[in-house]
Structures are given as structure tokens and as C-alpha cells.
């Protein structure tokens, strides 16, 4: 345990130190400008102190972000519009819906690609093309088009999330379903196994390690997709909206607090997938 904790804490401490230095360096200009305007001299200690407590710093100091986080997470009723728990929950639910849709789409396409030659030849280029389209440009259009069709709320965001999420799952599952080698397929042939047997008894179990690896990438991508989908004008809830409002009003502390909430959420989601992976692979006997 100590072997794990010590390096992690060391790196964390280094980051905090660098961060404080950056905060002083980046916020100093405003302090000097203020002092020049008031025709005052500031000592270095005054300067440092002043860079730590600004209301709209260029670079909020770590403790300011921590305060912002604490206020957003614990200092509000969870129903409040300032509550990061509320915004996080809204982003989380759209992420999960998008993740489910994206995973289902990714698996379905992968199964098709592995089994149908026509899909094998045609789907992949389109899937790759879909990922080269800048999501930031597409997202507002999708939201607007769906809104004009009367579809609002969770689903449009989830679709953007699914857009980003299906691709890693598709790639991982194609690789996974094709993991069985020639010998294993020949062997099933000697038993005159049906296509269904080949899929359920060999291909699908073989793909599980690939599947979970791509789920971890996919769920993080779904979160990014959801936040991007919350950025377009009109969205009032979700971490993405919180980020956007923060940047409208120059509330850098709010932006950073929302960013950290998003990062923590992504971390939790990936860890959760990792736990499920360990349980499933252990039950399958594949984790030694």
C-alpha cells in the first residue's frame, strides 16, 4: 500500500506546487495593473498574497478551486442551480443513456461487420469518417434539429455522447470477435457447430477482454460527448452548461470547479467499468 501511496502523493504535491507558481505568475499582472492605477508600490509578499484571493483570477489557486468545489458539491441543496451535484447528475444520466446507446450500436455494427461481408466492406470507412467530423460543430446542429422535431431533454445529449462512444466499442469488438484463431474455428467446424454456437460459445467470450478495454475508452468518450452537447446555447443544466456560464461571466473558479467535477466523474465511471470487468473476468475464470 505504501508503495502505491507514496509516489502518487509525491506527484500530487509536485502538481500543486507548480500550480501555485503558475497562479502567482499568471495573476500577478492584474495585481500590478491595479497597483499602478492606484499609484502604489506592492512588495513581493503583498503581490503573492493578492494573487491568491482574486475573485476572477486568470488562474485560480488550488485552494480557491477546492473552495469552489466544496461550495458546489456540499454547500448547496442538491436541487439548487448552483449545485454541482445536480449538474453532475444531469450530465451523468445523459452520459449513461448515451453510453448504453453507443455500446449497443457499437456491438451491433461489430457483429454485422464480422458476419456479413457486405458490412465488412462498407461500414468501417463511414465509422471512421463519423469520428473525423468535428463534434463541436455537429453537436449544436443535432440539438437544434432534434429540438425542432420536439425532441428535447436527455435524448439529444445522449445521442451526441453515443456518437463519440460507439466508435471505440466498434473497433474493440471487431477485434475481439475476430480474436479466435483459425484452429479454434476449424475445431468448431469438426463438431459441425452452427454459426450461433460459434458466436455464443467462442467469439463472444473471446471478445470480453477487448470489450471491457473499449468500454473504458467509450464511457470517457460518452462523458466528453455529453459535456460538448451541453455547451450550445440554451442548455441551462449539466456540467457543460456550468462551464459555458462560467466563461460568459468570467467566473474562472466556477469553470475549474466544474472541470474538476467532470474529471472526477470520468474517473469514477472508468473505475466502475474496471470493477465490473474484474468481477466478470473473474467469474469467467479468465482473471488468474
Amino acid at each position: 500500500m505504501r508503495q502505491v501511496v507514496l509516489p502518487v502523493l509525491t506527484v500530487l504535491a509536485a502538481i500543486v506546487v507548480i500550480w501555485y507558481c503558475a497562479a502567482v505568475a499568471l495573476n500577478a499582472k492584474w495585481v500590478r495593473d491595479q497597483a499602478a492605477r492606484a499609484d502604489e508600490q506592492v512588495s513581493f509578499s503583498q503581490l503573492v498574497a493578492a494573487t491568491m484571493v482574486q475573485e476572477r483570477p486568470v488562474m485560480p489557486a488550488p485552494h480557491q478551486v477546492a473552495q469552489g468545489l466544496w461550495k458546489g458539491l456540499a454547500g448547496q441543496k442538491v436541487t439548487s442551480k448552483r449545485s454541482l451535484v445536480r449538474h453532475g447528475w444531469i450530465t451523468f444520466s445523459a452520459t449513461m443513456l448515451g453510453f448504453v446507446i453507443g455500446t449497443a450500436a457499437g456491438i451491433a455494427l461489430a457483429v454485422g461487420i464480422v458476419h456479413l461481408r457486405s458490412m465488412d466492406m462498407s461500414v468501417m470507412p463511414w465509422a471512421i469518417a463519423s469520428q473525423t467530423v468535428p463534434i463541436l460543430a455537429i453537436a449544436p446542429m443535432v440539438i437544434v434539429v432534434l429540438a425542432s422535431l420536439g425532441i428535447k431533454g436527455l435524448l439529444p445529449k445522449a445521442l451526441i455522447a453515443a456518437w463519440l462512444c460507439f466508435f471505440p466499442i466498434l473497433v474493440g469488438m471487431v477485434k475481439g470477435l475476430r480474436a479466435p484463431d483459425r484452429m479454434q474455428l476449424d475445431q468448431l467446424r469438426t463438431w459441425n457447430a452452427s454459426g450461433g454456437d460459434t458466436f455464443w460459445k467462442l467469439r463472444l467470450p473471446s471478445s470480453m477482454p477487448y470489450f471491457f478495454a473499449s468500454l473504458k475508452v467509450g464511457i470517457a468518450a460518452a462523458l466528453v460527448g455529453t459535456i460538448v452537447a451541453e455547451l450550445p446555447a440554451g442548455a441551462t443544466a449539466g456540467l457543460g452548461a456550468r462551464l459555458l456560464q462560467g466563461s460568459y461571466y468570467g467566473q474562472t473558479i466556477q469553470i475549474w470547479a466544474a472541470l474538476f467535477t467532470a474529471a472526477a466523474l470520468a474517473g469514477m465511471l472508468v473505475v466502475a467499468v474496471g470493477v465490473i470487468e474484474r468481477v466478470v473476468l473473474k467469474r469467467m475464470g479468465m482473471a488468474q
Partner: peptide
């Protein structure tokens, strides 16, 4: 299913126990 074929590699499924591996062709049949 007139013959059983043994390959150079055992080709057992890592997610199945030995008994379940031996059962595999029986399940299929």
C-alpha cells in the same frame, strides 16, 4: 460427427473449466 480431431495445440477455452471444455462439443451436439 464421425470423427474427433485433436490439434497440435490443446485449444481449451480459458473461460471454461476442464469439464466444461470437454462438454463443449456435447453441448453443440
Amino acid at each position: 460427427r464421425a470423427y474427433g480431431y485433436v490439434f497440435q495445440a490443446a485449444g481449451l477455452y480459458p473461460w471454461r473449466t476442464i469439464a466444461k471444455n470437454i462438454m463443449l462439443p456435447l453441448e453443440i451436439m
